[in-house]
Amino acid sequence: MAILQVKNIKKRFGKTEVLKGIDFQLEKGEVLSIIGSSGSGKTTLLRCLNFLEFAEEGTISVDGEVIFDGKARKSLKDAEIRKNRLHFGLVFQNFNLFPQYNVLRNVTLAPNMLKIDTPENIEKHARELIERVGLTDRIEHYPCQLSGGQKQRVAIARALAMNPDILCFDEPTSALDPELTGEVLNVIKSLKSSDSTMIVVTHEIEFARDVADKIIFMDEGVIAEEGTPEQVIGNPKNPRTQAFLSRFNQTFA
């Protein structure tokens, strides 16, 4: 059974409908990559999954259980929202690390606050995660002492520390200098081999082709094309996808 099932998600801001009915599903351990031009609704979709925005219509199911239904969104309690959020993790474009805490504290803060385990186990797990993103030598550093790529790797460790079922990335490398994107993409790649379920919004087309099991091309709030990387990137059917990809090849080739 699919770990995530998203049905007919619609979201508007004022008069503009930003998501016009999004459907997709994701199996456990799969990596989904979402591409599409700026303004097509990719960020909004991730924010709906993490309940930073609430879709007006549609349902979100995790492991077969409907955890969100747009029709009932007004009656959702704060505690339910928080519980639902724990199914998902989100890595932001601009990291949003907590500046007053060092790397270790950034990773352990939420698990300790939510008491998901004993403090000893939480710290042990945090150290393992920090090791996995290659920052053991920076464990006592504060965010202002880290490069952008290092900050983003801490942000990934911080998200993993809550053991989310599905980890979402919103353009994790677009705030980075080009020479720092590799280290972050490599960490994401390494998570794939450890069977994490991930949704990665990215403009790194080559990366998407390389890591994703499935690609979604979004255009003006709808899924214009979806399929395997070979289908969507290698052999796009939709003219909008073709136009988007050829623009990319021009700018980034």
Partner: peptide, 9 residues
């Protein structure tokens, strides 16, 4: 938002 997505109140 970073706090929210980590499940904090």
């Amino acid at each position: 938002e970073a706090g929210y997505v980590l499940g904090m109140t």
